[in-house]
Amino acid sequence: MDNNQLGIQAMKQGELEQAARHFTEAIEEDPANPVFYVNFGNLLASVSEFEKAESFFNKAIELDPKSGTALYGKGNVYYEKEEYEKAAKAFTSAITEGVEEADAYFMTGMSLVQLNKERLGLPYFMRAVELNGQDADARFQYGLCLASQGELSQAANEFKTATELDPNHADAYYNLGVAFSFEEKAQQAYEMFAKAVRIQPDHVLALNGKKLMEEALK
């Protein structure tokens, strides 16, 4: 294996210093290869060295302006730094350059949600779910976006699917309870709030919802 492959292997095994050495040697051997800078950037981002990571992603983009993986890496850095406008732009650029993966769409949606642009985030979560229907968090976030646009029935379906994929997803049960309460299905709402509380006893919103439904069912 070459130094880049050895670096990736070491990174997967949690041997980060060794990975850094291999990536450094790979760059020294071929300083014009953008992939090596992307991999080093990902390594730095994994240990929260975001400023350094960004500089490596920038170098990769300088060498290859169409490097989708570098743009995606920059998006993650911006998201961690809470620069959500820049994150959304970087993620969408990565998608444009061929990063057709569920995570890219999911993170674009998350960036837009952080900017209170749920309507714009909706199609990105929809695509994330299309690409990976087994991701409970993608289903959950898609449901939240649907609910924010008044699509409660569709939202409930996504929350239900999220609970099936992750039976310990307290927030999905809570939001499913909210959807049932809006449909005036008090018993079903109560059961969902109760499940959320069993999973997370300090879930204040679920506790309040459960209490309200108890009153409604008297």
Rank of each mutant, 00 (worst) to 15 (best):
Q200I: 00
Y84R: 04
A170P: 14
F140Q: 03
Y79V: 00
A136S: 15
E183I: 03
D135R: 06
T69G: 07
G143W: 07
A172T: 09
K86C: 02
G109T: 05
Y124S: 10
F182G: 12
F193I: 00
L131S: 07
A104W: 03
G143T: 09
I95M: 09
F140K: 00
T96A: 12
E97Q: 11
N157D: 15
K86Q: 15
K160E: 14
T163K: 07
Y72A: 13
D202A: 08
H169R: 10
M110R: 09
L212E: 13
E214A: 06
D202V: 02
K195V: 05
Q149M: 14
A102I: 06
L71Q: 15
K86P: 04
R198M: 11
H169I: 04
K81E: 14
A138Y: 07
A189S: 11
N116V: 05
M126P: 01
D103Q: 11
A88I: 03
E97L: 00
L176F: 11
A104S: 14
I199W: 10
A128N: 05
R198D: 15
S181V: 08
E183A: 13
L120Q: 15
A128G: 03
L112Y: 03
Y173N: 13
Q200L: 03
K210Q: 14
N175E: 13
M126L: 12
V204Y: 04
A87V: 03
T161W: 00
G75F: 01
F182K: 14
T69Y: 10
S93A: 13
V197W: 04
M110L: 13
A102W: 12
E214L: 01
Y174I: 02
E101Q: 12
D166Y: 04
L112N: 13
Q200F: 06
L207A: 09
N76A: 07
P201R: 07
V197E: 14
G73K: 01
E100A: 08
K74H: 04
P123T: 13
P123V: 09
Y124N: 14
P201G: 08
C145D: 07
D171L: 13
T108K: 04
K89L: 11
S148R: 11
I95E: 13
M110N: 15
I95H: 02
S93T: 12
D171I: 09
T92N: 07
A194G: 02
L144H: 03
K160C: 08
K195G: 06
S181E: 15
V113M: 03
S111E: 02
A70S: 11
E184C: 06
A186Q: 12
M110E: 15
A186G: 00
E100W: 03
F182A: 06
D171C: 09
E118T: 04
E85I: 04
Y124I: 05
L205K: 14
E101V: 05
E80L: 09
S148Q: 12
E164G: 12
S181I: 02
Y124V: 05
H203C: 00
Y79T: 05
Y174L: 04
S153A: 09
T108M: 06
L212A: 10
M107V: 05
A70G: 08
A162K: 01
V99Y: 01
G68H: 09
E191K: 11
Q141G: 03
L144R: 11
F140W: 08
